[in-house]
């Protein structure tokens, strides 16, 4: 089978296998269904069944029928949709966002947000130090006021000394 066909089949095969896995899980739902009623597995199975039928149809279509022009078009489309220039930047940005989510409960919302903004701007090739510092401070204060004072969102204050730091800043901003 040509490589191009295999490449086109892979996404459908992955979806099909995942659907089969979830179908098996749906069969194991712990429940007692009264006669005449639909069990909790009905709706997921209906959706999974439909997904599997569509995947099988697409796989069969790609495998059995020649659609050179269409396949060329589709492949071209996938290639055209991937104009990545900075994969390193992308990975760093993603890691920083994940790290923010992890560290926000330890460092606290205020410090973590300030660091996140500063580091993101540096990684994003912004080099004006004063602009970075001012933007990060103003941004952090603005977010604190909007989310903690105006919208009353209870954001993480951090642990140990970081919590003390957060409370000090909140006190300075007049937020109780």
């Amino acid at each position: 089978m040509p490589m191009e066909k295999i490449k086109r089949i892979i996404p459908y095969a992955v979806v099909l296998l995942t659907s089969v896995f979830f179908w098996v899980l749906a069969c194991r739902f712990a429940c007692e269904t009264r006669s005449g009623n639909l069990g909790p597995d009905f709706w997921p199975k209906l959706l999974l069944g439909l997904t599997m039928v569509v995947c099988l149809y697409e796989i069969a279509k790609i495998t059995l029928f020649h659609r050179d022009q269409a396949s060329d078009d589709d492949a071209g489309e996938v290639k055209a949709e991937a104009p990545k220039h900075y994969p390193g930047l992308l990975i760093i940005g993603t890691l920083m966002t994940v790290a923010y989510v992890y560290f926000v409960s330890i460092l606290g919302f205020i410090l973590c947000t300030f660091l996140y903004l500063v580091l993101f701007m540096i990684v994003g090739r912004y080099r004006k130090v004063w602009v970075i510092a001012v933007n990060s401070v103003i941004g952090t204060v603005l977010f604190v006021v909007i989310f903690m004072k105006a919208v009353y969102v209870s954001l993480p204050l951090g642990q140990g000394p970081f919590q003390q730091f957060s409370l000090l800043i909140l006190k300075m901003l007049g937020i109780r």
Binding site: T97, L117, G124, N135, F147
Partner: peptide, 13 residues
């Protein structure tokens, strides 16, 4: 470089 972290932060919070 400023817009992305701001929006990313807003989506998180």
């Amino acid at each position: 470089a400023i817009l992305v972290p701001t929006v990313a932060f807003m989506t998180i919070i």
